[in-house]
C-alpha cells in the first residue's frame, strides 16, 4: 500500500509531529521511572521491612520515619561526613587539576606524554580504583614502603584501620581519580581562550600575571564553573571507594550517605527508614541542583551573547 505509506510518512514529516517523535519514548521511559518516586513517598510514610509481609499491608506511621531519621545520629553523621569529604576532595581536585593544566598549557617537549597520561585515572572503573588502592594501602604495602624510603626511617601508617587515615584514603581515592577530569576540562578551557583579547592586553603593556589575572581567568570562568558543579555533584554520591576500600570502617568512620542508606535498606532491611532518609537527601540535592543549573544556564547564556556579538 504505497499510498497509505506515503500518507503516513508525510504525516510524520509535519514539523508539529516530527519534532515530538523522540519525546514519546523518552517521556514514556521517564514516566515509567517516575513511578518509583511516588512509591518512595508512600514507603516513607509506612512502616515496612523487606522481611515483614507485603508492602501494601504495612501500617501507616506518618512522619515517624522522618523523625527517626533526623534523630538517627549515624545518619546525621553520614551526611556531615559526606559533605566533609566533598569539601576536602573538590578543592584539592580543582587546585591540582588547574595547576597541572597551567603547567601543560604551552607547548614543550613531553607535553603530549603528560597530557595523555594524566587522563588515565578517570577512565578506570571506580570500583577497581577502590580495590586497587586497598592493595597499595595495606600496612605492609608499597605506599608505606615508598614513604619509608622518602623519610629515611620505617613508616607504618595504618591507612585502612586508623579512622583518620581511612578518611584521608577515601579523599585520596577521589582526588586520584578525578583530578584528571578537572585537568582535562581546564586544559581544553585554556585551548579555547580567544587569542585577540590576550594580544590586546599584551599590546597595552600588561604583565604575564596581569594578563592571567584580569584576562584569562575571567575568560576561564565558565569552564571552572562546570568543573566545580560537576565534581561537587559527584562527590556527594561517593559510594564505590568506601565500599571497596574500607567497607565504611573502621567503625563508621568512612560511612557516606550512600553507604549508610545502602546498609539501612539492604543489610538491615529497614526499607521505610531508608525511604525517609532518601527523601530528606533528595530535598538537599534538589536545592543544590537548582543552584547548579542556575550557574550552568547563566554561563551558557553569557557565552551565547558573547558569540552573537
Amino acid at each position: 500500500m504505497p499510498a497509505a505509506r506515503r500518507a503516513a510518512l508525510s504525516w510524520l514529516e509535519r514539523e508539529q509531529v516530527f519534532k515530538w517523535l523522540p519525546f514519546v519514548p523518552v517521556q514514556a521511559l521517564l514516566v515509567f521511572l517516575l513511578l518509583p518516586f511516588v512509591l518512595l513517598v508512600y514507603l516513607s510514610l509506612v512502616s515496612w521491612r523487606i522481611t515483614r509481609g507485603v508492602w501494601w499491608h504495612a501500617p501507616f506511621v506518618g512522619a515517624a520515619n522522618f523523625a527517626g531519621a533526623v534523630q538517627d545520629e549515624r545518619f546525621v553523621w553520614a551526611v556531615i561526613r559526606t559533605f566533609g569529604f566533598a569539601a576536602a576532595a573538590v578543592p584539592l581536585e580543582l587546585g591540582l587539576g588547574f595547576g597541572l593544566a597551567l603547567l601543560c598549557r604551552e607547548r614543550f617537549r613531553g607535553r603530549r606524554f603528560y597530557t595523555t597520561l594524566f587522563l588515565l585515572p578517570m577512565m578506570i572503573v571506580p570500583a577497581v580504583v577502590g580495590y586497587d588502592l586497598s592493595m597499595l594501602l595495606i600496612d605492609q604495602g608499597p605506599l608505606n614502603q615508598i614513604l619509608s624510603l622518602l623519610a629515611g626511617r620505617p613508616v607504618t601508617v595504618r591507612w585502612i584501620s586508623d579512622y583518620r587515615m581511612a578518611k584521608a584514603a577515601i579523599v585520596g581515592a577521589d582526588v586520584w581519580q578525578w583530578t584528571s577530569l578537572v585537568f582535562l576540562i581546564v586544559l581544553s578551557g585554556f585551548a579555547g581562550l580567544p587569542p585577540d583579547p590576550i594580544r590586546a592586553a599584551r599590546a597595552m603593556g600588561a604583565s604575564r600575571w596581569q594578563i592571567f589575572r584580569y584576562v584569562e581567568l575571567p575568560l576561564l570562568k565558565p569552564v571552572l564553573a562546570i568543573a566545580l558543579v560537576l565534581r561537587s555533584m559527584e562527590a556527594l554520591k561517593i559510594f564505590d571507594y568506601p565500599v571497596l576500600l574500607t567497607e565504611g570502617g573502621p567503625g563508621n568512620s568512612t560511612e557516606t550517605i550512600a553507604v549508610y542508606l545502602w546498609r539501612v535498606g539492604w543489610d538491615f532491611t529497614r526499607v521505610s527508614d531508608a525511604a525517609a532518609m532518601s527523601l530528606i537527601l533528595m530535598v538537599v540535592v534538589v536545592m543544590y541542583t537548582v543552584i547548579a543549573i542556575h550557574i550552568l544556564r547563566r554561563e551558557r547564556r553569557q557565552l551565547a551573547e558573547e558569540a552573537a556579538r
Binding site: L35, L39, L43, L261, L281, T289
Partner: peptide, 22 residues
C-alpha cells in the same frame, strides 16, 4: 535539557530504595 540533567544530579542511592520494591 536542564531538567533532564537533574536525573544525573540525583544520587542513585535515592532511587535505589523504591526501585527495589518497584
Amino acid at each position: 535539557p536542564y531538567s533532564v540533567l537533574t536525573i544525573r544530579m540525583l544520587p542513585p542511592i535515592v532511587i535505589a530504595v523504591p526501585f527495589l520494591v518497584y
